[in-house]
Computed example of a mutant assay.
Amino acid sequence: MSIKVTVVVQKEENWYVAKCIENSVASQGKTIEESLVNLREALELYYEDTPHDTDTVPTFITTVEVAI
């Protein structure tokens, strides 16, 4: 079984930090790809003993422009 999650990747100094929106699990890596691989591993461990709900609610992501 697999699930889809929403992930944000941000550059912080010399690292890329990947964070799952649905549960706040995060990981990092020297590249975007490495941060995503590390996050995938962390999420697999996070969900390892969790009962799985087959009904998922879609997450919608957008951007908003704010005057400053």
Rank of each mutant, 00 (worst) to 15 (best):
M1H: 14
S2D: 12
S2F: 14
S2Q: 15
K4R: 14
V5S: 07
V5I: 14
V5R: 11
V7P: 02
V9S: 03
V9F: 05
Q10K: 13
K11R: 15
E12F: 04
E13K: 15
N14Q: 13
W15Q: 06
W15D: 02
W15R: 10
Y16P: 04
Y16Q: 02
V17C: 06
V17N: 07
A18C: 08
K19W: 05
K19A: 06
C20R: 01
I21W: 05
I21A: 07
I21E: 08
N23L: 08
N23I: 13
N23H: 11
S24P: 01
S24T: 12
V25P: 02
A26Q: 14
S27E: 03
Q28D: 01
Q28S: 02
G29S: 07
G29D: 08
G29C: 08
K30H: 09
K30V: 05
T31P: 04
I32C: 06
I32E: 12
E34A: 10
E34Q: 15
E34D: 11
S35D: 05
L36R: 10
V37M: 10
V37A: 12
N38A: 07
N38H: 04
N38P: 02
N38L: 03
L39D: 03
R40G: 09
E41D: 14
A42E: 08
A42S: 14
L43R: 10
L43P: 07
E44Y: 04
E44D: 15
E44A: 10
L45G: 07
Y46D: 05
Y46E: 09
Y47H: 15
E48A: 15
E48G: 01
D49R: 12
T50C: 10
T50G: 00
P51R: 00
P51I: 01
P51K: 08
P51G: 00
P51W: 00
P51E: 13
D53V: 09
D53I: 11
D53L: 11
T54R: 12
T54I: 13
D55E: 13
D55T: 12
T56M: 12
V57G: 00
P58G: 02
T59R: 03
T59W: 01
F60N: 08
T62D: 10
T63H: 06
T63S: 12
V64R: 11
V64T: 11
V64H: 07
V64G: 00
E65Y: 04
V66F: 09
A67D: 13
I68N: 00
I68F: 00
